[in-house]
Simulated assay, not measured.
Amino acid sequence: MENFFDQYRDEVQPALKSKLEEFILFGYDSVTEEELWQYLCKKKWKREREAKLLYQIVNDILSVKIGEYMNFATVEAFKSPDWFGNQGKDELSKLL
């Protein structure tokens, strides 16, 4: 599902990389660029009704707080329909 902001992804890639480097400095090295982009699209820009200028998009990226992202990631993980995957289901079946 493509949204309005996807057209700017290549242009704002350095800002995404910078934010991910900041996450790494604070010990959150498992966050990927795609996950950060999904957070921005699904949470930060969810209700955007008008176009934003490039500097506003970059500002949104650089102002992401780790706690905000982690809260989003936690909620998304709980929404996931398949917690165990196929391999986990086999292990679960053995236990039960």
Rank of each mutant, 00 (worst) to 15 (best):
F4P: 01
F5Y: 11
F5Q: 01
Q7M: 05
Y8F: 15
Y8Q: 04
R9T: 08
D10F: 07
D10L: 10
V12S: 02
Q13G: 00
Q13H: 10
P14K: 03
P14L: 06
P14C: 06
P14S: 06
P14T: 05
P14N: 03
L16P: 02
L16T: 00
K17E: 08
L20K: 00
L20Q: 02
L20V: 05
E22T: 08
E22Y: 14
E22P: 01
I24M: 04
L25N: 14
L25D: 12
L25F: 12
F26V: 06
G27N: 02
Y28P: 00
D29P: 03
D29Q: 11
D29R: 12
D29E: 11
S30N: 05
S30E: 04
V31S: 04
T32N: 03
T32K: 04
E34M: 06
E35V: 01
E35H: 05
W37P: 05
L40E: 02
C41H: 07
K42G: 04
K42F: 11
K44I: 15
K44R: 14
K44P: 00
W45N: 01
W45Q: 00
K46T: 01
K46R: 09
R47G: 06
R47L: 12
R47S: 11
R49T: 12
E50D: 08
A51D: 11
A51W: 06
K52W: 09
K52F: 10
L53K: 13
L53R: 13
L54N: 05
L54R: 11
L54F: 07
L54V: 12
Y55N: 09
Y55M: 07
Q56V: 08
I57E: 05
V58K: 04
V58R: 06
V58H: 03
N59V: 05
D60W: 01
I61D: 04
S63G: 05
V64D: 01
K65V: 07
K65Q: 15
K65N: 11
I66V: 13
Y69N: 01
N71S: 00
N71C: 00
F72I: 03
F72S: 02
F72V: 05
F72G: 03
T74H: 05
T74I: 08
E76H: 05
A77Q: 11
K79V: 07
K79N: 13
K79H: 13
K79M: 12
K79T: 07
S80G: 10
P81V: 10
D82R: 12
D82F: 14
D82T: 11
D82Q: 12
W83D: 05
F84P: 01
G85P: 15
N86P: 14
G88A: 01
K89S: 08
D90W: 04
E91G: 08
L92C: 03
S93V: 15
K94L: 14
K94R: 14
L96E: 07
